[in-house]
Simulated assay, not measured.
Amino acid sequence: MSLKPPIPFASAPFERAAHHRTDTDWLKAAKSNPTSLFMLMYKGKVLCEENGVSLEDVIPGQAISQTPRLIAWLTSDQLPIHEPSQSIFLSEDNGIARFSINLPAEFELENSALSQHVLGDVRAIAGGISPEDAQFAATSAAIFNWHRRHSFCANCGHATHITEAGWKRTCPSCEAEHFPRIDPVAIMLAVKGDKCLMGRQAHWAEGMYSCLAGFVEPGETIEQAGARELFEEAGVKATGRIEYLCGQPWPFPTNLMIGMIMEVENETLIVDKNELETARWFDRAEAQQVLDGTHPTISAPASIAIAHYVLKAWLESDNWKN
Rank of each mutant, 00 (worst) to 15 (best):
G219H: 13
P180N: 09
K195N: 09
C211D: 00
P184N: 06
P180Y: 03
M188Q: 14
I222R: 10
E206R: 11
P180R: 05
P184W: 06
M208E: 12
E220P: 07
E217R: 15
A205E: 15
G207F: 09
T221C: 02
A186E: 09
V191D: 02
V185E: 11
K195H: 12
E223L: 07
A205P: 02
R181M: 11
P180T: 08
A213N: 13
R181C: 02
V216F: 09
M208D: 01
R200M: 09
P218A: 14
A202E: 14
D194S: 13
W204G: 03
A186L: 05
H203A: 08
D183R: 12
A213W: 13
Y209T: 00
V216T: 13
P180L: 08
L197N: 04
F215H: 12
Q201R: 15
G207H: 08
G214N: 10
Q224V: 07
G193T: 05
G193C: 08
P184M: 06
M208V: 06
I187M: 14
E206A: 11
P218H: 13
R181F: 03
P180W: 05
W204N: 10
C196N: 01
G207N: 07
V185M: 10
I182G: 00
P180Q: 08
S210G: 12
G199R: 10
P184A: 04
F215Y: 11
V216Y: 07
G193H: 11
K192L: 14
P184E: 11
Y209E: 01
E223G: 00
A213I: 01
G219R: 13
G207K: 08
A213H: 10
M188I: 14
G214A: 09
A190W: 01
Y209L: 00
V191Y: 10
A202D: 10
A213V: 01
A205S: 15
Y209M: 05
K192V: 09
Q224P: 04
M188C: 15
E223M: 02
G199V: 08
M198C: 12
E206D: 10
Q224M: 11
E206M: 06
I222K: 08
E217C: 03
C196V: 15
I222H: 06
I182K: 02
A190T: 00
M198R: 04
M188T: 15
A186Q: 10
D183K: 11
G219M: 13
G219E: 11
P180C: 10
A213Q: 14
Q224G: 10
C196G: 13
W204L: 07
E217N: 12
G207Y: 10
G214K: 09
F179D: 00
I187Q: 12
L189V: 02
D194I: 01
A202V: 11
W204I: 05
L212T: 08
F179E: 06
D194W: 01
I182P: 00
C196D: 00
K192N: 14
L189K: 04
L197E: 05
S210H: 07
S210E: 11
V191S: 06
Y209W: 01
R200C: 14
M198N: 04
Q201S: 02
E223R: 07
C211G: 00
D183H: 07
V185K: 02
F179T: 06
R200H: 05
